[in-house]
Amino acid sequence: MKNINLLLIGMTALLFVACNKEADEKPKVSYESTAKEKPAPKTDTTQIEVADLPIHIPGTNYLIHPVGDLNIYGGAKKYESGSATNDIGFTISNYSEGEIAGYLRNLKFQQIGSDSIHALSDKPLLIQTATYLKSVAEKTKQQVMVYALADMDTNKDGKLDASDIKTLYLSESNGGRFTKMSADFQELIDWSLLESMNRLYFRTIEDTNKNGEFDKNDVIHYHYIDLSTKDWKVADYQPI
């Protein structure tokens, strides 16, 4: 009987590992439907929204209020005042040298001297980074923010999270002209600012073999945006 129990426990453990592995290998893109409409994520009404204290990026005339979910992904820290007894994370973002990072549902902007607050977008988002380009502002007088975020439920699991495709957006320092710069269904690999030319270079990868993953058999696209003008047009280049 003891051996049978051990065998059952072992089989259960293997099943649990297999299920977890399958969840971890969830594809970034699902092609279940042939419809061309963008997969719209559903708003999770069970989450509790919380805003961090406002951030002022030097050189701008706006406060930024990061907005996110309490205990998102279970990665929250204990309340740091020492008076809390529950493992509830009230801090949802990190700020360093002009960059706000986290898993944020929105950013709210408030002009200094005004009580009016407006949102970056009224659509579901998951913002991972928002970066102010200080050198571009100094050279061109354009105050530009760069965002890496998810805006579509590309794996069609009914929610917007880090498992969905990450894409590139730009906006002004007040959240205005919030514009998508990378193509739909192309994963943002990275971006870099070439200060000498006021160009924002970025790479994306396209799932050209339609297997739902981004791998060595897919195509990498190379782009740049000339930030010395206000057009914000994406140009392709071929380094290979």
Score class of each variant (00 low, 15 high):
D161C: 06
M11W: 10
T167S: 11
N94R: 15
Y169V: 03
D207Y: 04
G59R: 04
K210L: 14
M152L: 14
S96P: 10
L120N: 05
F178R: 03
L149T: 02
A51V: 01
S192V: 09
Q47E: 14
T179I: 11
T179M: 09
I112N: 04
Y79T: 14
V50T: 09
P66M: 09
G212Q: 05
K141H: 11
N3V: 10
H221F: 05
P239T: 03
E22D: 15
R105T: 07
S81H: 10
K233G: 04
E22I: 14
F178I: 00
V136A: 00
L6D: 11
V67G: 11
D115R: 12
M11I: 15
A23N: 13
D87F: 12
S81K: 11
T46F: 00
K210T: 13
K123R: 13
P39F: 09
K230R: 08
D157L: 04
P239C: 07
L200H: 00
M197E: 14
T131Y: 05
S196T: 03
Q143H: 12
Y79I: 10
I117P: 02
K123M: 11
K139F: 03
A84P: 05
L15D: 09
I220T: 11
K26W: 10
L14G: 15
H56K: 12
E195V: 05
T129V: 04
I88E: 07
D207H: 03
I112K: 12
K134N: 13
S163T: 13
I240W: 15
T45I: 10
E213R: 07
D231Y: 06
G98Q: 12
D161M: 06
A51S: 08
L168R: 01
F178T: 01
F90G: 15
L53I: 11
N106C: 00
L133T: 05
S196G: 02
A35N: 15
K216V: 13
L193P: 02
D236T: 13
E80L: 14
P39D: 04
G113T: 00
E187L: 11
V136L: 01
Y222F: 05
S173K: 02
L15A: 15
L227K: 02
V17G: 10
K159C: 10
Q238I: 11
Q238N: 14
P41T: 03
M181R: 00
E187A: 12
A137H: 11
I112P: 06
N3D: 13
D115Q: 12
L120Q: 07
S30C: 07
V29W: 04
F185K: 12
V146A: 01
Q111P: 05
A18I: 10
D153L: 06
K26R: 10
K26Y: 05
